Computed example of a mutant assay.
Amino acid sequence: MGLIENRDAQFMLLAGFIIGIGLVITTVMLNSVIFEGNMAVGAGTEPSKNDIINLIQITNDETRAAYRNAINISVPTSLMIADFTRQTQNFSDNLSTIYALHGEGVNLSWDVSNWNNDIYPYFTDNGTAGGSANWTVIQNVKDSDIIVNITTFGGSFNITLINSTTDWINLTSTGNFTFKKTSVQPYSIVFINGMNNAGKFKITGNTSDGKAFIRARDYILYANETFSTSRMRADFTIPISVPW
């Protein structure tokens, strides 16, 4: 009888040991699942490269639209800038509200000193001194009207119209210049030596497939953006060519 009781005790100890091991394994597995779930949620809240690119593109589009709206009426520059500021502030407030719903923060401000002080951009690809001096403004052109206002002249500036032949328009001083070109054979409009010259330009026309286009630059405005989440903060400044 004593032997049977000892066996019962051994079985009870063995069962308890097995249950204990099972609880340990279950706890480890559960912790692993919770940890991986938290990692997935945390990773999902981090901004991707595409998120930043989309934010920059939205800011570009809204800034240009606000500028075009502001200059659409004939009023002093100060009133145009005030109108632009109201539009962009509304955009900034709405954007901040949308991002806040996702636990993220966006803060925007604009530097319009170039516009306010008539500081004109370079004829480089991005309008800044460090931009590419030789660049293609548009390709596949059928006809175009080109208006260039050079306010700062620092050396020979060329507008080149290229297809099977090349037409050189050599500008050698400040002033306003207007050119037209229509061609059966599509051509490209290229700026050459834009780094030492500043001013405004506007090019309108049609492509060879019949689509109207506008390429224009009055100023470079700067949008200062702060993007933040619970884990990171990014500050960046975007040079924006306006009106297009």
Rank of each mutant, 00 (worst) to 15 (best):
V190S: 07
W168C: 01
Q139E: 07
D143Y: 09
Q139N: 11
L171M: 09
D167Q: 13
F157I: 00
K181N: 06
A198E: 14
N158G: 02
K180L: 03
G194D: 04
N140R: 00
W168T: 08
F201S: 01
V137W: 04
T178K: 13
T166K: 07
G154R: 06
T151W: 01
N197F: 14
D143L: 13
N140M: 09
T165E: 03
M195E: 08
T178M: 10
A133F: 13
D167I: 14
L161F: 11
G131C: 09
G175N: 00
Q185F: 04
K200M: 07
K200L: 10
Y187R: 11
F153Q: 08
P186D: 02
L161Y: 13
L161P: 08
F157G: 01
T152H: 01
N193M: 02
S173Q: 09
V137H: 00
G199M: 07
S144N: 06
I159D: 03
F177G: 06
T166S: 06
W168R: 00
N134V: 10
G131E: 05
F179T: 07
T160H: 07
L161K: 14
A133Y: 03
I159E: 09
P186V: 12
D167E: 08
A198C: 09
N140S: 11
I189R: 03
V190I: 07
V184D: 06
I162E: 02
T160G: 04
K142W: 12
F191S: 13
L161H: 03
S144Q: 12
I159C: 06
N134Q: 07
N176Q: 01
S188I: 04
W135A: 11
W168K: 08
I147V: 09
